[in-house]
Design a protein around this nucleic acid. Structure first.
Lengths: 348, 348
DNA sequence: AATCTCCGTGGTAACGTTCCCACGAGTTCA
DNA sequence: TGAACTCGTGGGAACGTTACCACGGAGATT
């Protein structure tokens, strides 16, 4: 019942030209007379021709497919990245194969294999692997995204500018009178953690703060991880207002929950600064002040960078996108010597 | 520098068999000697052979690609659906092409064309179109997801059981003593709105409630839409406690913001019931009580259903997945004649 | 006027796999 | 013993497109 889909040969026949000419006209090559092109395009429209990308990929080696391998599409930050990448890919007539690795080496390897078998033109990868082996074996053009990219300095990568982001956060904390913030960090196994911590230390030194004296807790990059880390933080001896810089918005939101569960208030008793810029931070109460990574823009740039890589001109090298501070209501302003004064509680 | 990738012919040569036999062994066909199969597999491993899905698709008509067209991957609900679909697809050795339509007809049409050109085996679509035309022209097996599916009774679809969901919500509201809840609905242009409203009316009739007497406001399916709708609701004359049933979690969270901005408290002054079950609802304060759709499960079932459709046995027809009530802290319990008693404020 | 160059065109090969058919050897049945 | 059948195997065609080469005619150059 479903009849054969028209091919370029059908178009050529209808237009009265050879399939070579038809192919040239349809692919927008220049060496075709206007009249022939016109006839071919008209014929294509008439028979309802649609190019077969498989055959194109087979012959030309270009499939018009790109791969995106991220930890989890349900994580709001990665969803933003995916959206940016998808939009940019669509602008260039390419499509995106999306995979979630769940921080699992096996899954990642399996996804990379699927990408190779699909003969994608290239891939954007947030690598689970901290060794170069799997990536080395990938065998296709790729661009790394995220903070783990710094482990692979030889490859193109697009990430947020952590150094600038931490400085932004520190400046904001200090400007509000928080000179010795506690830290809530991710698991020790994660590369991003070391990066964050090292940058943080550098900024402490610049400001004559002894980082070793600052409270510090670990947790998974989740709401629950942030909650338990904050509980441990609250159990410590402390005097006066507590300010916390969390390495991730989900942890910051979890910390906020823990504060409330402890019978304390944010920002009156505890100030919280997040990191990521996920939408959910705008719905909490108070709204979460955070350093926002440009997730969508990272996705866009990664695709641009990947096109360069595919074209054999990897001129970008490593791209660091600037972050911005989103001020909502989770930081108290102690700079006016009014320790108990709440910050305005607008929703950034 | 990058040498040719090994083909099935290389494998055949190395194993000392014909490419037909090599192909049979690699594709797991039965009519091959164990010894030959062994040799082929060994040879494939030795030369690092990886099947070319393009060529397979070219010849066999099966590409191992599925399309997913949803409104927006950054919407947490759709991200869940995508994740479920992706996982199930991966289990079956297929990959997912993901597109966001942004409720735009042009984008949707363009994405569907890209799917056809990529020769995907089938697609899962949340259609923007309310007419059948675009879908009719699609020409490939597809399964619809989401509430708009009901416009197309002739096609397979997977969605949540709105009737059951609304009943669940109503039962909960009534059990907490809210017999005349206000409604915050989506835009009149959306199909989901009519569905929700009709079901709501049916349940009102069953309970001898006059739906016409209930306050009702429209808004976009966003936080801002919910916020302004709630502001309009609060401007109306009212007596006592206000209960609101929002047609979407984002709107519910926006409503919560509006309540706070008006100097009122949730749930003490206003009770809010959401609909969707997005993760952000757990981070708000109070936590959002909501009717949760099984997003991930919908994605999984949609893929199963699509495989049936591709195989030419569309036995599923229309699948409705049951929703469940997630009780957090945004509803006051008025059932004990204690109008001002706050509900427990746990985080579901 | 002869040659060279450029341009548009058409034919053919090639991409890597699966499908189809034919072949020979071994087995079963009459 | 011969026919029919099964089974594993191999050769070739086919999928739809683009790359490559060759050709003829028009215009430019010598």
């Amino acid at each position: 019942m479903q009849r054969r889909r028209p091919t370029i040969i059908d178009v050529a026949r209808k237009a009265g030209v050879s399939k070579s000419t038809a192919g040239r006209a349809l692919s927008g090559a220049s060496n075709v007379t206007d009249e022939a092109r016109e006839r071919v395009l008209e014929a294509a429209r008439a028979v309802g021709y649609e190019r077969n990308d498989l055959a194109v990929g087979m012959r030309s080696g270009r499939t018009g497919l790109l791969g995106l391998v991220i930890p989890d599409i349900t994580n709001p930050f990665w969803a933003e990245v995916a959206r940016g990448a998808q939009d940019r890919a669509a602008e260039n007539g390419t499509s995106l194969l999306v995979f979630s690795s769940d921080w699992d080496h096996g899954r990642e390897a399996s996804h990379l294999r699927a990408l190779r078998q699909a003969r994608v033109d290239g891939a954007i990868i947030n690598p689970v692997a901290d060794s170069f082996d799997d990536l080395d074996r990938f065998g296709l053009p790729f661009v790394l995204i995220g903070s783990s990219a710094e482990r692979f300095p030889a490859n193109s990568s697009v990430g947020s500018d952590i150094a600038q982001a931490v400085r932004l956060g520190m400046d904001h904390l200090v400007s509000k009178g928080h000179h010795a913030p506690a830290l809530i960090l991710g698991p020790k196994s994660r590369i991003a953690r070391a990066r964050f911590l090292r940058t943080f230390h550098e900024h402490c030194v610049e400001r004559d703060i002894d980082p070793a004296a600052l409270p510090m807790e670990d947790g998974e990059y989740t709401v629950e991880g942030g909650r338990t880390a904050m509980m441990r933080l609250l159990e410590r001896d402390r005097v006066g207002h507590l300010a916390v810089f969390a390495a991730n918005d989900l942890m910051a939101l979890g910390a906020m929950v823990a504060v409330r569960e402890a019978g304390l208030r944010c920002p009156e008793d505890v100030s919280i600064l997040g990191f990521d810029g996920i939408p959910a931070g705008a719905f909490s109460w108070p709204g979460l002040t955070t350093v926002a990574k440009p997730g969508r823009e990272i996705g866009v740039r990664a695709v641009d960078c990947l096109f360069d890589e595919i074209a054999g001109r990897p001129e970008h090298g490593r791209v660091f996108m600037p972050c911005r501070l989103v001020e909502r209501g989770s930081l108290a302003d102690l700079s006016l010597n009014q320790p108990r004064r709440a910050a305005s509680s607008g929703r950034g």
